[in-house]
């Protein structure tokens, strides 16, 4: 967890994010809406900035955008595969499952990157993130095929973590 202090850069970053969310939810260009949005996001950011400042913002370069697109496609393929996997298991009258809870350690240090990884794991074939404690991920796996730690890591996290490591690096 980060230090709970008030800094102006963190404050304006929060205002910006809250205003983006406001704008996404209203999607109108009327001046009244925009002014209300700015006033409300200044106010809400003032109240919540201490709790929201979990992650350091990173500088976005053009290379990052390519990685984001690459990540998006890796994720999309995994999501579609996951759905056909679930469909296959649900339709089969014998319910072919062999559940278990496995764990692995991640090399990522950035909190936001960890959240993205956890969400992606939840949406990929047969895995569900139960908890993240420090660097350790606990995963409910619908069909445990191996108990070897390295193979578990390779099977579940590697395709996503490769791309995320390129974006965030392994430092904080």
């Amino acid at each position: 967890m980060s230090a709970k202090t008030f800094s102006y850069s963190q404050y304006f970053y929060t205002v910006f994010i809250i205003f983006i969310i406001w704008y996404a939810f209203t999607t109108s260009l009327q001046p009244a809406e925009i002014v209300t949005g700015i006033v409300l996001s200044l106010l809400v950011a003032y109240i919540t900035v201490v709790n929201f400042s979990c992650c350091n913002p990173i500088l976005i370069t053009p290379a990052h955008i390519i990685y984001f697109i690459q990540y998006f496609f890796v994720f999309l393929v995994a999501l579609v595969k996951a759905n056909f996997d679930v469909a296959k298991r649900v339709i089969n009258p014998k319910l072919p499952i062999n559940p278990g809870i496995v764990s692995f350690e991640t090399k990522l240090k950035n909190n936001f990157a960890k959240m993205v990884l956890a969400n992606s794991i939840t949406l990929t074939p047969g895995t569900l993130t139960i908890d993240v404690v420090g660097d350790k991920f606990y995963i409910h796996w619908i069909d445990v095929t191996t108990e070897n730690k390295n193979e578990i890591y390779k099977e579940i996290a590697e395709p996503f973590e490769k791309v995320l490591l390129k974006i965030y690096g392994s430092e904080k």
């Binding site: 999501l79 579609v80 996951a82 759905n83 679930v86 469909a87 298991r89 649900v90 339709i91 319910l95 499952i97 559940p99 939840t122 949406l123 047969g126 895995t127 569900l128 139960i130 409910h140 619908i142």
Partner: peptide, 22 residues
């Protein structure tokens, strides 16, 4: 259907989340 058929809570979550999200 997965929510209805699966034997326990965690498997229901698996089926429910993935299929209903996509």
């Amino acid at each position: 259907l997965g929510i209805y058929r699966m034997p326990d809570l965690y498997n229901r979550l698996q089926a429910g989340t993935k299929a209903s999200t996509l």
